[in-house]
Design a protein around this nucleic acid. Structure first.
Ligand SMILES: [Mn+2]
Ligand SMILES: [Mn+2]
Ligand SMILES: [Mn+2]
Ligand SMILES: [Mn+2]
Lengths: 216, 216
DNA sequence: TAATATATTTAGACAAGCCTAAATATATTA
DNA sequence: TAATATATTTAGGCTTGTCTAAATATATTA
C-alpha cells in the first residue's frame, strides 16, 4: 500500500502535529534523522497522494486519509510493544526499536487478532493509549511534570521519550507508571524539580520533568 | 545487517539447493518473480559479501555464512506461521504471506523468546521442521506421493506448496497432516493417483501428488 | 562438428530515497 | 524598511533493486 518510508513520515507528522498546527520541514528532518531536502522530496510525494496538505514554505498537516494511516501505524506499534512486554517478558525499555520494525507488518486482520488475543489492552507499556480497530482511543488530560506548580500532586501516567537510557533511569528512581508524586520544590536556577514520593524525596532535572506526564 | 532483498535471495537459494547441488539464474528468477538480469546483479552482490559461491554461467550455492542466514530466516518464517495458527487462530492456508513479511523482523532475541513462549515447537503448520536457535532441525525421510509405488502406504507429513488454493483444496479432501493413506491405483495416462484413505478413496492429480509428502 | 536453441550476462535506463551545495523565500533585527 | 540570519526548496548526483534489449556463453541437435 504505502512504503515504509512513507509510513514513517506520516507517523512523524502525526506526532509533531500534537504540539503545533503545522509541522515544519526542519522538525521532520530532525525527528526522522534525515536532511531537509530529503523531507521536501517526500512531502511532494505525500502531497501528490493526498495524504498531507502541503504549501511550500508553510509546513504540512495530515489529510484525514493521512491521519487514518498514521493512527493505524501507531496502533500497530503500541500493540506490538504490549505483546513484547506482556507475552514475551521484555522490559519497557527494550521494546521500542523492535516495534519500529513490527509496526510496518501490513495485515490489519493480523493486528486485530493480536489485539483480541491480548484482551484489547487500552495502554501500551509507556502509558500511551492504543487506538482501537476504528482508530479511536482515550484522551486523558495529562500534564508534564515540568508544567505543574509547587505542592500540586498527581499520578505518573505516561512518558514522552522511549529511549532505553531514559526508561532505565526512571525505573532506577522508581518513577514508574502509577506512582503518586507531588512537587516539593522547584529550583529556580536550572528548573530542576524535587519530587515528594510516598517514602522519599528525589530531585530530577528539567529534562526529565519535560518527558514525564502525570494525571492530576 | 542484510537487506530484505538479500535475505529473500538467500532463502530462495537455500530452498532450491535442496533439489540440486547448484542453483541456476533462471530458477531463481522464476521463484523470486523477477528477471534473470536482476538475479545476475544480485548474485554479484552476494558473492562480493561472500554469502554465495558464484561462477558466471555455472550457478550458485551458499557459503556457510550464507546458509546460516538462510536458515535463520526460515526459522523466523516457520515460528511466525506457528504463532499465527496456534495463538491467533489463523488457518494454515492464511499464514504464509504474513510470515513472508514477519521473517524479516531482525531481532534474534525476539524470535528466541517467541520460540520459548510457544514451547519450542518442532514443526510449522505445514509439517516443515523449525530450526532451533542454533540452526539445527529434524530431517525426516519423506517421499512425494508421486514417488511411491502401488499399494505402499504412509502418513501425510508435510506439504511443498503454501498457496491458499492448494491448502484449501487439501483441507476439503481431508488430506491433512497426520492422515494415513495408501496408493490404490496409478493412472498411466496422466499420472493421477487414487488414494485409499481410512473411509474412502479419492483421486488426486499428478500436480497435487507432487506437492504432498508422506513418511513411509 | 556446425547450426540452432536456450541460458546467462552486459549495457543502459528508471524509480525510490537519500545526499551536498546552491538558490531562494521568510523571519528577525537594526 | 533594509540588512542579515534562518528555513526551505531546487539542482544535480548516488545507491539499491528493478527492467528491456542486445551480446555472449553453453547446451542441444542435425
Ligand atoms: Mn515506542
Ligand atoms: Mn510506547
Ligand atoms: Mn510459509
Ligand atoms: Mn510453512
Amino acid at each position: 500500500m504505502n512504503t515504509l518510508a512513507e509510513e514513517n513520515y506520516l507517523k512523524s507528522i502525526y506526532h509533531l502535529s500534537l504540539n503545533a498546527e503545522n509541522v515544519s520541514t526542519n522538525q521532520l528532518a530532525a525527528l526522522l534523522n534525515t536532511k531537509a531536502s530529503s523531507v521536501t522530496d517526500m512531502l511532494k510525494k505525500l502531497s501528490d497522494k493526498e495524504l498531507i496538505n502541503y504549501t511550500p514554505y508553510q509546513g504540512v498537516n495530515l489529510t484525514s486519509a493521512g491521519e487514518k494511516i498514521a493512527i493505524s501505524i501507531i496502533r500497530k506499534h503500541r500493540l506490538w510493544e504490549y505483546f513484547l512486554v506482556e507475552k514475551l517478558d521484555f522490559k519497557w525499555d527494550e521494546v521500542h526499536e523492535m516495534a519500529e520494525e513490527m509496526e510496518h507488518i501490513s495485515s490489519n486482520e493480523l493486528i486485530d487478532r493480536l489485539d483480541k488475543f491480548m484482551g484489547f489492552p487500552e495502554y501500551d507499556p509507556h502509558g500511551e493509549p492504543i487506538p482501537d480497530c476504528n482508530g479511536l482511543f482515550k484522551i486523558h488530560d495529562l500534564k508534564l511534570v515540568s508544567a505543574i506548580g509547587l505542592n500540586e500532586s498527581g499520578t505518573i501516567w505516561a512518558v514522552r521519550n522511549h529511549s532505553p537510557e531514559f526508561l532505565k533511569y526512571l525505573e532506577k528512581q522508581e518513577l514508574i507508571i502509577g506512582k503518586k508524586i507531588s512537587i516539593a520544590e522547584i529550583i529556580e536556577f536550572d528548573h530542576s524539580v524535587v519530587l515528594q514520593m510516598e517514602d522519599k524525596k528525589i530531585q530530577i532535572s528539567r529534562e526529565v520533568a519535560n518527558n514525564l506526564l502525570v494525571a492530576i
